[in-house]
Nucleic acid binder design. Structure first.
Lengths: 373, 373
DNA sequence: CTGAAAGCGCTTACAG
DNA sequence: CTGAAAGCGCTTACAG
């Protein structure tokens, strides 16, 4: 027994109903959802015809009256296709998986947020994956992805994906994968953001404030042979600084967290006490640097300027507020999803870097070099 | 043509293979995954028998040799069930959806992380939803949830869910829902964390440091009639402070972000300059309070103590480091998922609050009241 | 206890 | 161009 409600009687709708008829008709009896067959029966056509019409099959051409009957039946029953059944038939799930190393790193939040929004807009759900670097976990995830085909594609933003994950992803039997914010050898579709340009902007800013002897603290270098974003950020910064005639000492922290930034800053400053500015290649690192400076009794920016890559609310409300170079992270997530869907639909997608200009946001943590140092 | 690899020859495995045989056998030809039928054919039994054995049907009892043949065939082909097909048959998707207002609020991150981990451990995927409060969006999401049944259940942690979402969720035809971190009228399963106890601990801490005239800044009060967490936190704090003999002025910010905390702090402090301590009922609010104090040239904690509810890395690396009361947020996510799955499996689940003790983490932002104020 | 059949709700070759 | 049939890969009543 299928519950439905006529939508024909417009005239007395307002007088009789408390809610407007714009409300979707929900089968409160909840006994059974209408299926294609129900629609077909009501419209007195074959189920396959309904399917074709609904999917806008270009081959099909039917009389206006039949089409109207079908559409009316769809409306009347409140029919919506069962995605599970369609998925079984078409080998699609309309769900994507985002694999991220650590949500606690605020940098991933805008990427995910952009990805989620775009996925939803295009009719896909986004499942949260995590590559915690646990060998067993990764292994199981890969098996599942390859074999169960429970998702249509993978958006990978892992900073430290395990070997098994990576190799599985690069294999030909793997589902469509787009990597964001990293270049992985063997993966044809890597979407990046221009962190080299951002690093150059950071260098320029520092140099323009008079800094000539500066440090850069970045995350761990990647052991694999891929062109690594941590390295890339450092290289671009160093190169530009050298070009300008400045000197720079680089330090790779053991991870991307604030504590690592703190330790890196204190050891770097102990070794090279004349540094007048520090560039942290991500926000949490920079927050750690700020704290390191505080511990060393260095006033920021008077004694030490600090600049960060990536902009988040935490950077804005740091004390002092962090000067940052913002990169289009939400856009990265959105674009990554677009390309992933392209790939799922059979288009070939290469690697690219988002051309959007990095944005220098000057706040309180950088200042003109003072003479007494 | 199904690619497989014998797992029988253990003896020469090490001499001949570069990789150990522990590696999963992945069908590189990618032509077709093995199905139940394939397994059945290889084991010379009926597909339904394989299904029953794999699903541990208690009714079935077969000879050890048949069982062994089946298991060997499963192993050999690397068979894994197609979840889509099983889902169609069983009306289950093994995916859950988490609906959160804003990932940029760091408080949600541990909840989501806990939820994701637990869901994965129990064989469910977790889709990221968002209730942005856009009426149309919510409406469409609800329709989809109700009708497409594309997820098995909903974990809702929305601070400001729209009416349509809420009412749809409370309706009987809705999918199983568990609300976390909030009590919603009409929803039977709300899992909360003891923020009243936490607020009392904050009050005790402040009082023990000598503070007698303090403020509390919380998020917006909920317009609906449910027992509201913002209000609840304030009430418990006020009540305890009064009980101790202190005085408190409460302020509700327009949202839960740092900027709102900043504005609230400055207006509150302008109205009541003699306040010696401020309690922010979430981290971003507290960060904003810190900045407000700075702008007013108030030294924290000398001139003003600040304490926050919830503990995150951003709190730890604030300047000064925030004293916080930590609540078991990851556990909330995990527990919420467990209860949601219970509900999906037909058990009835009521509302409860996690009994785990809130943890006072004393850092730099609170101090003994100084005499010169 | 076991095997064969039906069916979940779709889509898409295929024959008319 | 349209309708009827087959089939995606499972599970589960049902008959033997």
């Amino acid at each position: 027994m299928i519950g439905y409600q006529s939508i024909g009687a417009h005239t007395d709708a307002n007088s009789l109903n408390h809610r407007t008829t714009k409300e979707p008709i929900i089968d409160v009896s909840s006994s059974r959802r209408p299926t294609l067959k129900d629609v077909a029966r009501l419209a007195r056509v074959d189920p396959s015809l309904v399917s074709k019409v609904l999917n806008k099959d270009p081959q099909v051409s039917l009389s206006a009256s039949t089409r109207a009957r079908i559409m009316a039946a769809v409306q009347e029953l409140g029919y919506r296709p069962n995605l599970r059944a369609r998925g079984l038939r078409m080998s699609r799930t309309w769900t994507l998986e985002a694999v991220f190393p650590d949500l606690r790193n605020p940098v991933y939040v805008p990427i995910i947020e952009g990805a989620r929004r775009r996925a939803a807009a295009r009719g896909y759900g986004l499942i949260l994956g995590t590559a915690d670097g646990q060998g067993e976990d990764d292994r199981r995830r890969v098996e599942q992805l390859l074999n169960d085909r429970v998702v249509d594609g993978l958006l990978l933003a892992s900073g430290q994906a395990s070997d098994s994950l990576l190799s599985a992803i690069a294999s030909e039997s793997a589902p469509p994968v787009v990597v964001v914010n990293r270049k992985v050898a063997g993966v044809e579709s890597c979407i990046m953001v221009d962190d080299s340009a951002a690093s150059r902007i950071a260098a320029d800013h520092l140099y323009s404030l008079g800094h000539r002897y500066v440090g850069v603290i970045s995350g761990p270098k990647n052991s694999m042979g891929d062109s690594d974003s941590s390295q890339r950020r450092v290289d671009a910064f160093v190169e530009r600084m050298h070009m300008l005639g400045g000197e720079v000492v680089a330090h790779y922290a053991e991870n991307w967290h604030a504590t690592a930034g703190l330790h890196s800053a204190t050891t770097l400053l102990a070794r090279s006490p004349n540094l007048t500015a520090l560039y942290g290649t991500t926000v949490m690192l920079a927050l750690g640097i700020l704290r390191g400076a505080h511990l060393l009794d260095l006033n920021v920016p008077r004694d030490l300027s600090v600049i960060s890559l990536h902009d988040t609310e935490a950077a804005e409300f740091a004390q002092p507020a962090l000067t940052t170079v913002a990169l289009p992270l939400e856009e990265l997530g959105e674009y990554g999803i677009d390309r992933l869907i392209d790939k799922i639909e059979g288009k070939s997608v290469g690697s690219e870097v988002l051309t959007q200009e990095p944005l220098l946001i000057i706040r309180e943590s950088t200042g003109r070099i003072t003479l007494d140092r």
